[in-house]
Simulated assay, not measured.
Amino acid sequence: MTTATRALTTVSGTRRRTRIKPERYRYNTRAGKVFDVFNFALLTAIGLVALFPFVFVLVRSFAPETELESSAFFLWPKAFTFEAYNSIFSTPAFPRALITTVVVTAVGTVVQLFLTVLMAYPLSKRGLPGRNIIMSGVVFAMVFSGGMIPTFLVVKNLGLLNNYLALILPLAIDPFSLIIIKNFFQNLPSELEEAARVDGATDFGVFWRVALPLSKPVLATFALFYAVAIWNDYMSPLLYLNDSSMWTLQMFLQQVTSASNLQTAQQDQPGYIPPSEGVKYAVVVVSTIPVLIFYPFLQKHFAKGMLIGAVKG
C-alpha cells in the first residue's frame, strides 16, 4: 500500500473516504522529533570535531610567520599570505617529490589491483587444484607477516634498492583485499559463466567480458584503498630509497617537519630562509588535497563493494 492510497471505509452505513498518512508522518511523534534534533546535533558536533584539524592546518598555512610564532592557536589569521606556498613551489625538491608520488601511486595502484584480481579470480573456482592449500597460505600471510628486516633483505637481494619497484612489489597483493575480491567473484551467478561458455567464450573471455564488468564497485573500492596506502606510505621510501632525488612526498614532508628550514632554498636568493612553520602546514595541505579530490568520486562504491565482497564463501 503506497502513501497515496485512499481507503474507503463504511461507518454507520455511510461510505467515508479516509487518507492513509505516509509512514514518515505516522512515526514522527514528539519523542521522535526530540530524538531527531538530538541526533542531528550530535552528528554535527562530531563532524565539526573531525573537520577541526583540517581547518586548523589550512588556516595556519596562510598565516604570516610572525603570527605563527607569537600565537599557538587561532582559527583565523590577522593577515593572509602565500609566502609558505611560494617557498615550497619555488624549490625543485617539492615538485619533483609530488610528481614522483603521483606516478608511483598511479602505477602501483594498477599493478597491485591487476595482480590481486588475477589471483583472486582463479581462487574463486572451487574446482581449482590446490585451492585450499593456497587459501590457507593467504590467511596465514594475513595473520603473520615476515617483518621489516626479512622484507628488507629480500628487496636488497633482488636488487631493488633505490628502485621505485621496491615501493610497489613488496605489498603488491594484500591478503585481506584478495579474500574480499575472491568472495565477490565466487558469488557471481554461475548462469552468466555458463551462458558465456555456450557462446564460445574461453576462460579468459569469461573473466574479461563477464566477471570484470560486474566487479566495478569492488574494484573501485580497493583501487582507492591501494592508492591511499601508496600515497601515504612513508616506511617503504625510508627503507628502500637512499637517493634524496628519488624521495616521495611523504619523505619530503618528513624532512620539512623535522628541519628548521628547507635544505633546498631558493637558488637565486642567497640568504633567503623560507618560513619554517608555514612551510610545514603548506606541505601538509598540498599533500592532502589530491586524496580529498578523488575520494568523493569513489566513495559511493565503498558500501556496495565491501558488502558484496564480504559475503562468506
Rank of each mutant, 00 (worst) to 15 (best):
R26P: 08
K33D: 06
V49N: 00
L43F: 15
T18I: 14
G32I: 04
T66R: 07
T5S: 10
R30A: 14
T9K: 02
K21P: 09
A41E: 03
V59Q: 11
V55I: 15
L8E: 14
E65C: 03
R26Q: 13
V49M: 07
T14G: 03
A45P: 08
V59L: 12
L48V: 15
T9I: 14
T14W: 00
R30M: 09
T66F: 10
F40Q: 13
R19F: 05
I46T: 05
L42K: 01
G47H: 02
N28F: 15
Y25S: 12
L51E: 01
D36Y: 07
R15Q: 15
F38H: 02
V11T: 07
G47D: 05
R6N: 08
T29I: 11
V37Y: 11
R60D: 07
V37G: 02
A63G: 08
F62I: 12
K21S: 11
P64K: 03
L51N: 02
N39Y: 12
V11Y: 12
L58D: 09
P53I: 09
R19D: 12
R19L: 07
R16W: 05
A63S: 15
A45R: 03
R6H: 08
A41I: 15
R17G: 02
T66A: 14
L42D: 05
A63K: 08
R24Y: 13
E67G: 03
G13H: 01
R30Y: 10
F56G: 11
T5I: 04
A45F: 13
T66L: 13
F52P: 06
T9H: 03
T9V: 15
F40D: 09
R17T: 15
L51H: 00
Y25R: 05
V34W: 04
F62D: 08
K33M: 09
T66M: 10
A7N: 07
R30I: 09
R17C: 01
S12Q: 06
R26E: 14
T10S: 14
R6G: 02
N39K: 10
G13P: 06
I20W: 05
E67H: 02
F62E: 05
V59K: 04
V34N: 01
Y27T: 13
I46R: 00
P22A: 03
V49Q: 00
R16Y: 01
V57A: 06
A31D: 06
L48S: 00
L42P: 05
G32C: 03
T5H: 06
R60A: 08
S61T: 04
